[in-house]
């Protein structure tokens, strides 16, 4: 039972999700990592350090759905499991690969019950489906946030696979959100802001609180649609799925599509002017009041307490 795991990376840096995927995949067998990138060397070197990795395979190509799918297809016969993160890349390529290999994939897995039994959320996380996959090869995506990271300290060998992969679709441009906040999907603390934050300037207040706590910053769809926050900050059914130790939701009503993204949070704190807001109802700790008054005071208070992370 062996695993081929597709590594996510951005801007030449390995995604922090990879160590979690390795730990999760180890339940299925020995893990080899595939890196498809224009310059895979430094990404592969990072991947080789993750404990439990047997080897890292690199393909030099512009990563886009067709090149990644073709690389995976080239290697897939050697493995019983092909795994990717339930990220924008994994979601793009695993179903494409599945159709090529005529395999029904199981995606957004949050729990591995046995090598062929998995749990995945449906209906925006309002139900959990347990499926048995009797197919000879399993195509899977895992939600990184549901698993703990593997340790580092490994020195797995790196091999380059000399294949030429092409794509009819061409990559034109990346529009990257400039931000030095931690990765949302794997952050330990997340601060979320809703549409009631009122403006992009208002979001600087949320970001300031984020900095104080070393937290990642997220937003509701309503806040993103209004242009107050970038799209890659969206948390929820259509955005990112988070599972931090602490989620602080500020001016967020708690629509079920938003709750879909935060169900894995250990503790949920809420600041809201409405004591009846659904998010207040499920929060472990809530403070009722005006966010514009509360958040600056909270920053001062936390600075006074001297939390340094």
């Amino acid at each position: 039972m062996s695993v081929l795991l597709l590594a996510d990376h951005d801007n030449g840096v390995l995604s922090p999700a990879t160590a979690r995927l390795v730990a999760a995949s180890s339940a299925l067998g020995v893990v080899d990592i595939l890196v498809v990138a224009e310059n895979p060397a430094s990404i592969a070197a990072e991947a080789a350090k993750i404990a439990g990795v047997q080897k890292v395979i690199t393909v030099t190509a512009t990563p886009i759905a067709e090149t990644i799918t073709n690389s995976l297809e080239n290697l897939a016969q050697r493995y019983r499991n092909v795994v990717a993160s339930a990220s924008s890349v994994g979601k793009d390529v695993i179903p494409r690969l599945a159709a090529k290999l005529d395999i029904q994939p199981v995606t957004d897995v949050v729990e591995i019950l046995s090598p062929n039994r998995f749990t995945r959320p449906i209906y925006a996380g309002n139900a959990l489906e347990t499926v048995e996959d009797p197919q000879a090869t399993h195509l899977l995506t895992f939600r990184a946030s549901a698993f703990r990271p593997a340790a580092s300290g490994n020195t797995a060998p790196v091999e380059s696979l000399d294949i030429s992969v092409t794509s009819a679709a061409k990559f034109l441009a990346a529009h990257r959100t400039d931000s030095d906040t931690p990765d949302l999907a794997t952050a330990q603390i997340v601060i979320g802001g809703g549409v009631s934050v009122g403006s992009a300037e208002g979001f600087q207040l949320i970001e300031k609180l984020g900095k104080t706590l070393g937290a990642a910053v997220g937003a509701t769809r309503a806040a993103v649609d209004a242009g107050y926050a970038p799209n890659d900050w969206q948390i929820g059914q259509t955005g990112k799925i988070i599972a931090p130790d602490l989620y602080i939701a500020i001016g967020i009503s708690g629509a079920l599509q938003h709750l879909a993204g935060i169900q894995g949070a250990k503790k949920i704190f809420a600041i809201n002017s409405d004591p009846e807001a659904p998010l207040v109802k499920i929060a472990d700790v809530a403070l009722i009041g005006d966010l514009f008054e509360i958040v600056p005071q909270l920053v001062t208070e936390l600075e006074r307490l001297g939390l340094k992370r």
């Binding site: 996510d8 951005d10 801007n11 886009i64 990220s87 924008s88 890349v89 009819a168 679709a169 061409k170 990559f171 034109l172 441009a173 990346a174 529009h175 990257r176 959100t177 999907a185 970038p230 799209n231 890659d232 990112k240």
Partner: peptide, 11 residues
């Protein structure tokens, strides 16, 4: 819409 923001491709 991708995890790092947005990207433009031609098909």
């Amino acid at each position: 819409e991708v995890d790092y923001g947005r990207e433009t491709i031609s098909v």
